[in-house]
Design a binder for these strands. Sequence first.
DNA 1: ATGCCGTCATACTGACGA
Length: 268
Amino acid sequence: MLSPNTDSMGNSMKIATWNVNGINARTEHLLRWLKEFNPDVALLQELKTPGDAVPTLELKELGYHVEFVGQKSFNGVAILSKNEIDVVLDKLPGDEEDVQSRYIEANTGGVRVASIYFPNGNPVDTEKFTYKLGFMERVIERTKELLAEEIPFVLGGDYNVAPDNGDVYDIQKMGSDAICREEGRQLYRKHLHMGLTNAYKLYHPEPGQFSWWDYRGGGWNKDHGVLIDHLLLSAQAADLLVDSNIDKTPRGWEKASDHTPVWCELSL
DNA sequence: ATGCCGTCATACTGACGA
């Protein structure tokens, strides 16, 4: 007897990461983009709200479950999913004194996902850069635990690291920025070399592809950008990977975030 | 260029971002 096989349609999961640069200022953009792009999972960063500005009801109407950690004015990360979300961690382990809202990890639709807002790290000669490097070490430590679970997982977010010179429009102009510093690049590689796959770079290794463009100096119109938003996948997730790209559409809208979504698609 | 632009706060200026 043939099974009804009713749940076989699609079986694909689109997972995107997007630094919205203020969810209050970007609510209309977010809702429009969700309707148009229709991701199964959206990992958001820089909510810049304790939570009151998160449009929970509108998101629910679009079919999304929502979990987030926020704080006033700065940082803040969220997971939106069409499947139920079971939060595993709402802070990055390894520093009890770190109260910045930069990490949320959850199970949803059979995949472990995390939305991570890595510290920017500028200026590099201050404790902000030290904090960035320490945060990256803590993500590596957490990743060791995740790898031991041997599960498909996707660590998405604003890594604030441009891994290669080709990920920067002009290395002469950006070379001294924290996102290009060798200390951060080494830790990014240490993370990657644990066995993770950068989904976008797997399909688009060519230089000159960006996820952030400076508001200043007409960066968007000149395509003066950097690639700092990444989706890092465990082997079990990479086995399911069928596509990845950058959706530049929302960056062209009026009053855009300076970041645009990076997404990957898994075939489950 | 310690510049440029944009968001947030209790705000008409400053911190922060990358």
